[in-house]
């Protein structure tokens, strides 16, 4: 590459960066929220939680890192508050060290808001390394893999821990930004017939479709838009709905870029011919 070429490429790059920045900023500033219609996956997750018998216990796994918190947080809040409102007890863990820090504070806050008692209505057990070993071990006994909760209390002393294995919970919801739901499917569901549901980063959605059609994964709630859809089903305003206009603006910008990029490509090809 010659110097002028590099400089031109650099200039284009910065132009595109500014475009991304501007489109999202404008989307955030405009006081308007588009309506979203819930998709199949969102409805399936919602009705699963609606139909859980109050007082049952469910497992939640925060299988993501702090980096993807902006996308995972609205999903996690929507699902967890729905569960707490339905009086479902929550045992939460994390397969990532960083998920532990996030899960702990999120659960605490939502628990307090919904006036639930730690240790009876919800508990946060924390993190253990090697996801496959953790999932296999929990099939034997939760308190074996997690002898202490995240705050150092002996788990066998907590009333909620009378649920100690997969057959005592209605299923697991993995809130994930990467490949960890496949561990729940391959080790939890295949060996222990655990029902697996997922709240995923949008990027993961297509990768898990084959597991939904084969019945190994109950449902996929996907991305910020999924969170907005869920919020609309719950009739609340949240981080998902608030972001929808900015999301639209960003998509429009990307479509423009793809079109402009291809037009200039086709023109340069014509010139060569």
């Amino acid at each position: 590459m010659s110097d002028t070429q590099t400089r031109r490429a650099q200039k284009t790059r910065r132009l595109i960066f500014s475009g991304v920045f501007l489109s999202i900023t404008i989307g955030l500033l405009l006081p308007f929220q588009p309506e979203v219609t819930p998709s199949v996956g969102t409805k399936s997750m919602f009705s699963f939680i609606e139909n859980i018998k109050p007082g049952s216990t469910i497992l939640i796994s925060f299988d993501h890192e702090s980096a993807s918190f902006p996308e995972m947080k609205p999903l996690a809040i929507a699902v967890v508050s729905h569960l707490l409102k339905r009086d479902v007890k929550i045992i939460a863990i994390s397969l990532f060290p960083e998920g532990a820090g996030l899960g702990a504070s999120l659960l605490r806050r939502l628990g307090e808001e919904n006036k639930k008692t730690y240790g009876t209505d919800f508990v946060f057990l924390g993190f253990k390394p090697e996801p496959r070993a953790t999932i296999l071990g929990m099939g034997k006994s939760f308190s074996f893999v997690f002898p202490f909760d995240f705050y150092g209390t002996k788990t066998s002393d907590l009333p909620i821990m009378s649920a100690d294995r997969y057959s005592d919970v209605v299923g697991v919801i993995t809130i994930a930004d990467g490949s960890y739901p496949s561990h729940w499917i391959e080790y939890g569901a295949a060996k222990y017939e655990l029902i697996v549901l997922s709240a995923l980063a949008a990027s993961m959605v297509t990768s898990y479709d084959p597991y939904v059609t084969s019945g190994q994964l109950h449902s996929i709630l996907g991305g910020l838009r999924g969170a907005a859809e869920y919020e609309s089903l719950l009739n609340v305003d949240g981080g998902g709905s608030r972001a929808m206009l900015a999301q639209t603006a960003a998509h429009i910008f990307i479509v423009l870029i793809l079109i402009v990029g291809n037009i200039s490509y086709l023109r340069s090809r014509k010139k060569k011919v």
């Binding site: 475009g19 991304v20 702090s66 980096a67 993807s68 990307i254 793809l258 402009v260 990029g261």
Partner: peptide
Amino acid sequence: QSSVFALLAFFVASAAFR
């Protein structure tokens, strides 16, 4: 961490263009 992740939004756009 999430800011580093957010850089990807910019990179996605420039990679899509190129």
